[in-house]
Simulated scan of single mutants.
Amino acid sequence: MNTSVSVIYYTSKTLKNGNHPLMLRIIQNRQTKYISLGVNINPKFWDIKKNEPKRNCPNREAIQRLIIEKMKEYTDKIINLKVEKREFTAKSLIDKVNTPVKRMNVNDLFLQEIAQLKKEGRIRYAECHDYVYKSLLKFNKHLDIYFSEIDVQWLRRYETWLRGEGNSENTIGIKFRTLRTMYNIAIKEGYVKAEFYPFKDYKVSKLHENTPKRAIVKDNVIKVMNHKEPVSNSSYNQL
């Protein structure tokens, strides 16, 4: 995929004040799209040869900073898409860059999920999530953090803290499975990138305690089957 991003002093459009707008031109597989930078400049303040504002241009530094930031925003997105081997068009690239990133911290997503589970009548699941929520709150003191901040080291500290609180292996496992579920919801809803997912390296499956089996030994089963109840005297008397 051949992609180019460049700044264009768009002389094809002249505003009422005689200025021309600054645009970004995105070319992707021969498809060209333009997007306004929200800035228009009078021709006497734009250096055509250097393709930049002249030294005497009002707000020159702010305009240059805007150009650099926007160029970086688009080139970073292009690199990420190529690394992920995802196809895109010039238009979809613009949409991806301009779509606001959804933000929700751990605290708010937990409360939202608990409320939704109660609304659906899934009370036991809601209570389980609330139980884990309160545990996390006690451990971290607050949950005004984003899911990207919960990494492997964070999970290990939480596990150590839970053990110090006297939690059993299975109880710890339940709490981590619930936290993992919430992390997956955060990824699905776009609140955190999948690349930050810590449970690829931190295995929740290890948090399991085998319950002793209450099986009867085969020899004992045979004894029970062959056992005959003694006939009591009262039984004879009833005949």
Rank of each mutant, 00 (worst) to 15 (best):
F88I: 11
V106A: 12
S92E: 12
I222T: 12
L239D: 08
V231R: 06
S148M: 05
S4P: 07
P58S: 10
K119Y: 09
D95C: 01
H20V: 05
N105K: 08
F147C: 04
M71N: 11
K188R: 14
K213D: 14
L239M: 10
T211L: 14
P212R: 08
R86F: 08
I187W: 04
N17F: 07
S235H: 13
V204E: 01
M23L: 08
I123G: 03
L22W: 06
R214G: 13
L109Q: 12
K13I: 04
F176H: 01
W154H: 01
Y34K: 08
I94R: 04
L109A: 05
Q31W: 07
K91M: 12
Y9K: 02
M182V: 05
D151C: 00
I35V: 14
K13Q: 13
A115Y: 06
L179M: 09
K49Q: 10
V152L: 00
I8P: 07
V5C: 11
A90Q: 02
K16F: 00
N59W: 05
I174P: 00
V106E: 06
I68K: 15
V83C: 10
L136V: 04
K50D: 07
R157G: 00
N184K: 14
N56P: 01
R25N: 11
T89N: 08
N80S: 14
K141T: 06
I41V: 14
N59E: 14
R122W: 10
D76G: 04
F45R: 11
P58T: 09
I35E: 11
T181L: 07
K50W: 05
K33V: 07
N107A: 06
V221N: 04
K223I: 14
E113L: 07
K82D: 13
E165F: 00
I145L: 12
S205R: 12
V5Y: 01
G164Y: 00
V83I: 15
I145Y: 02
A186I: 05
Y74F: 15
N170D: 09
E127S: 13
V83T: 15
M23T: 04
A126Y: 01
N19T: 14
I222F: 13
I79M: 09
I222D: 13
K50T: 05
Q28G: 01
G166V: 02
A90D: 03
E159M: 00
I187F: 05
P53T: 08
I35D: 04
Y131R: 15
K16M: 03
S6G: 08
K200I: 15
G164N: 03
G190F: 04
A90T: 03
N80M: 09
N56C: 10
K119M: 10
A115W: 04
S6P: 02
V101S: 11
I123W: 10
L136T: 01
V83N: 15
R177F: 03
K200T: 14
